[in-house]
């Protein structure tokens, strides 16, 4: 197990190094921030001063080298716009995004698995056919459009839920969180549902497919032949088997949830790091873009590791061990 983890960490290091280069060169290509940051009436001297102060006069590889050596010390550069360390700016907004992503994930799991299992158990009933049709909508409707429609319905027409912001925030374990107060919860509900829709549809489909497959296995018939209660067969024998693909996919998708909360955060003006990213792209604030992407890379690498470990807990046939090469 520990050998496995060390090996994985080394692999992850390689991934991070490669990604840092891709990210840095990608951002380098998208445009010159000076055009946006320098005021129109600045003269050539002021422009060059600015370019020099941001280190943009050096060759690309040198800039990358400086970036890496600073990054190793935990410094991902300073925002051109805010003049603050990019990493701190992002970490400051991370709890909001994480909260949104975790609540969405919970919604996807809590509703997705029972609905999917139900649809798998009774594939011909009208209820499961509606569930499956609903999941197609969840897949195909664009998130931003659903978000706007939700605001229109629940915030504007019905007035039940607030449309923007985080509401009351309480600091729990050093993190500001909305979910523990009613006002905060009402703020987080709509964006979280919006963000969850896609994953919810996916969980429903995975759980349904898994249930359909597992139900026809001999071991389910054998469990019935043992005279087990229907509830135990479904909750233990079926559920534990379908959780394997669900956990794998959801784990990997959690990174996506964080990364793609950009759209939802923009629609609902949720003060998370996705919104910061969009604003920074608009201003070509390179250090923030780079720092954001690097954090996402770290997140994905970390989640992959966690999923592998979870996987081994769920499926005893998978034991984490050093692969002999």
């Amino acid at each position: 197990m520990s050998v496995f983890i060390i090996r994985r960490l080394l692999q992850s290091g390689v991934v991070v190094i490669i990604m840092s280069f891709i990210v840095f060169s990608g951002v380098f290509l998208i445009g010159d921030p000076v055009e946006i940051l320098v005021s129109d009436d600045a003269d050539q001297e002021e422009r060059e001063e600015m370019i020099k102060s941001m280190g943009l006069d050096k060759p690309f590889l040198v800039q990358y080298g400086i970036f890496v050596s600073k990054a190793l010390k935990g410094n991902l550069g300073e925002s051109f716009v805010f003049n603050e360390p990019a990493l701190l700016l992002i970490l400051d907004r991370m709890p909001a995004t994480m909260e949104l992503a975790v609540v969405s994930l919970m919604i996807a799991i809590i509703f997705g698995i029972p609905l999917g299992v139900w649809a798998g158990l009774k594939p011909d009933s009208w209820a499961s056919k509606s569930i499956m049709t609903g999941s197609i909508l969840g897949f195909s409707l664009p998130t931003f459009w659903v978000g706007i429609m939700m605001i229109l319905l629940f915030a504007v027409m019905l007035g039940w839920l607030p449309s923007t912001g985080r509401g009351d925030v309480q600091v729990i374990l050093g993190m500001p969180l909305s979910i523990f107060s009613w006002d905060g919860f009402s703020h987080v509900l709509m964006p979280a549902v919006n963000l969850a829709l896609f994953k919810l549809s996916m969980v429903i489909r995975l759980a349904r497919a898994g249930t359909r497959e597992v139900l026809h296995q001999d071991y389910i018939k054998f469990a019935k032949a043992k005279g087990l209660q229907e509830s135990r067969i479904i909750l233990v024998h079926v559920m534990k088997n379908i959780l394997i693909p669900v956990v794998t996919v959801l784990g990997l998708e959690f990174g996506g949830l964080v990364a793609f909360s950009v759209v939802t955060e923009t629609v609902f003006a949720w003060p998370g790091m996705g919104k910061l990213l969009i604003d920074s792209i608009g201003l070509l604030d390179r250090p923030i873009i780079v720092a954001y992407l690097m954090i996402i890379v770290f997140l994905f690498v970390f989640i992959n590791l966690v999923v592998d470990i979870l996987y081994s807990i769920l499926d005893p046939r998978v034991r984490l061990q050093d692969v002999k090469s």
């Binding site: 001999d218 071991y219 054998f222 032949a225 024998h237 534990k240 088997n241 499926d315 005893p316």
Partner: peptide
Amino acid sequence: FQDPMMTLNPV
């Protein structure tokens, strides 16, 4: 059952 590889729940 016939196939012992399939009758026990693997997890």
